[in-house]
């Protein structure tokens, strides 16, 4: 298992290096370099040259790439062109909100999706199966921003059950540890803050979970249907084991393999969906930051964002691979 992990880590660093090269090349190829964004339109060519030199843009490409690599290793993405603050700081402030939201959405998707998918497979051909499958189809069809807005109108504005915006009630006094408000509230003993954060999370998390939930239901259903027809499940039945043992140890352990892969991939894609959901609920994650950086051609900010998301993806992939190793002994590298 250790060798397997090390091997995966090595593959991962190669992937990241390739990504940095791609990203660097991409930004080089973009039209309208950053000097045009910083200087007024009537700036002279000499002024442009001077700024290019100051930014290091006149150096040979490989030197620039080396510089670039050196800075991102130190997590120095430069300063935002619009706010002037270090990008690493901006991201660090906003990322926890997005992470918390994505994890909450995933918790709902997994917690509901796997049991529902299992139920649909077990009751295949009945109205339960039909209802679950059509419900999940509906889930993938509804645009997130629409669902988010409807949830907000019905449950927050009309019924008033849950708060409409932000991560905490305004003026709440809390201790910041990791930036994940629910988690922080629990570890610092501020349970009222944790509960307040949960209430603020519910609607955005439900909105964000709709697509992963639908996907997990369908994958679970297909995977369980695949596995229950396997000979080893019949062997387990032939042993006279209790149905719960057959289900847990023999069906679900095998059915989890494809589900784990999908969960990893979905977690990465949740960040994209989070941009929309965050804007509806004014959640203050990286969504608004990215939106602003894109419209204002804030290249360093975008670069920082893309790198962070890429690292997330790669790390999630690593976790999926490792979970595969744990779930399926055949994947482990032979001794």
């Amino acid at each position: 298992m250790l060798r397997y992990t090390v091997k995966r880590l090595l593959q991962l660093s190669v992937a990241l290096l390739g990504l940095s090269l791609l990203l660097f090349a991409w930004f080089k190829a973009l039209p309208g370099g950053p000097e045009n964004r910083l200087l007024p339109e009537n700036a002279t060519d000499r002024q442009r040259e001077a700024l290019r030199a100051a930014l290091g843009l006149d150096e040979p490409v490989w030197t620039q790439y080396g510089e670039f690599l050196g800075r991102i290793v130190r997590l120095d993405f430069g300063s935002s062109l619009s706010s002037g603050r270090p990008i690493a700081t901006e991201l660090a402030e906003r990322l926890p909100a997005t992470v918390e939201l994505s994890l909450a959405a995933m918790l709902i998707a997994v917690g509901l999706g796997i049991p529902l998918g299992y139920l649909a497979a077990k009751r295949r051909g009945t109205w339960i199966d039909f209802g679950t499958v059509s419900g999940s189809l509906l889930g993938t069809c509804i645009p997130i921003f629409f669902l988010a807005a409807m949830l907000k109108v019905v449950f927050a504005q009309e019924l008033g059950w849950l708060p409409t915006t932000f991560r905490l009630t305004a003026g709440a006094d809390f201790t910041e540890v990791t930036g994940l408000r629910v988690f922080d509230g629990i570890i610092t003993g501020e349970f009222d803050i944790a509960w307040d954060a949960v209430k603020h999370l519910i609607l955005p998390a439900i909105a964000l979970s709709s697509i992963p939930l639908a996907v997990i239901v369908r994958i679970t259903r297909a995977s369980v249907l695949d596995v229950v027809g396997e000979d080893y499940v019949r062997t387990a039945d032939a042993k006279g084991l209790k149905p719960s043992t057959v289900r847990g140890r023999h069906v679900m352990r095998n059915a989890m393999l494809p589900i784990a892969t999908i969960i990893g991939l979905l977690l990465g894609s949740l960040f994209a969906g989070a941009v929309l959901t965050e804007s509806v609920f004014a959640f203050g994650g990286i969504g608004s930051f990215v939106y602003q950086a894109t419209t204002e051609r804030d290249y360093p900010a975008l670069m920082g964002f893309i790198l962070v998301i890429a690292v997330f993806y790669v790390v999630i992939n690593l976790l999926v691979d490792l979970s595969y190793g744990l779930l399926d002994p055949r994947v482990r590298v032979r001794k």
């Binding site: 396997e230 000979d231 080893y232 140890r249 095998n254 779930l327 399926d328 002994p329 055949r330």
Partner: peptide, 14 residues
């Protein structure tokens, strides 16, 4: 009961 195909009749992950 003993089954026909010993590979597919044993759970691969246990």
């Amino acid at each position: 009961m003993v089954f026909q195909d010993p590979l597919s009749s044993l759970n691969p992950v246990v």
